[in-house]
Amino acid sequence: MSPRIAPALTALALLLATPARAGEMWITNELDDTISVLDTDSFEVLRTIPTGERPRGITFAPDGTVAYVCASDSDAVQVIDAETGEILHDLPSGEDPEQFALAPDGQHLWIANEDDAVTTVVDVSTRRVAAQIDVGIEPEGMAVSPDGSLAITTSETTNMAHWIDTATYEPVANTLVDTRPRDAEFAKDGAELWVSAEIGGTVTVFDVATQAQKTQVTFAIPGVNDDQIQPVGFAFTPDGHTAFVALGPANHVAVVNADTYEVEDYILVGRRVWHLAFDATGGKLFTTNGVSGDVTVIDVEGREAIQTVKVGRFPWGAALRP
């Protein structure tokens, strides 16, 4: 090899090592046993990846190399190579895993086992169960605090948020919330915990230090019956000042000011909107619409839906590949 082209080849090798790939939004299709991978700029479906049965919750390792997917009816969390889409192996997840949260250490996956009234903690490196914790009936939402010290499981039929010490795996408190709690997310650098209640129709904001309710966000859309407004998934803008809340069969996403807790806007999306995730810039939001089988792309700045993308049957979870 001539010394002149060697540096050029090195540069090429570096380029190949970190290819400038499109931003990818991964969508789990609950009733198709697949993942649709969307280009976050062109909104095209780049590829469709087969999974285990009834894929729901999805998240990525912090380095983006693998995706973790709850294959609920296969009773497994599957680890998928983000590059090839190949299923590398399963993690022991407990029965019927629905949602999970990866601790900030990237090592511990906290899994809600919906059919088993248990939260399972799995070490993703050793692939071993680190702990199982008894919680209420139909555990659903999972969150781990930004400092990694506290984990939250919500249980849909028991109507509680269970606060678990991640060091001891012991619950430290169980607080009642409104009917059928779904998602839990920490906000304000871990100072607040937000919990949505699907049948209650509310989002409750807790002060984490005291575990006391701070306030409650309620929703009202003209022309939509109150009992159809069912908050499910929600996500905060990167600056943390705004929350977007999926309202299920109300077919709208609410825009909530996270500082004043006022609802500022409602955006019409597809039917039965479940979950949502932002692209890398935070400028676009992708919502999964279960009944209409599509994804709505929302322009965050303009607060309007700009595109609908057909995916598989009953799209459920959404995660941006880092």
Binding site: V118, A131, Q132, I133, D134, W163, Y169, E170, P171, V172, A173, N174, T175, Q211, A212
Partner: peptide, 15 residues
């Protein structure tokens, strides 16, 4: 498997 301890009840109720 960690069962919920009765002593945690007070914390639950206060919360």
């Amino acid at each position: 498997r960690h069962a919920m301890a009765g002593t945690l009840l007070l914390a639950a109720l206060l919360g």
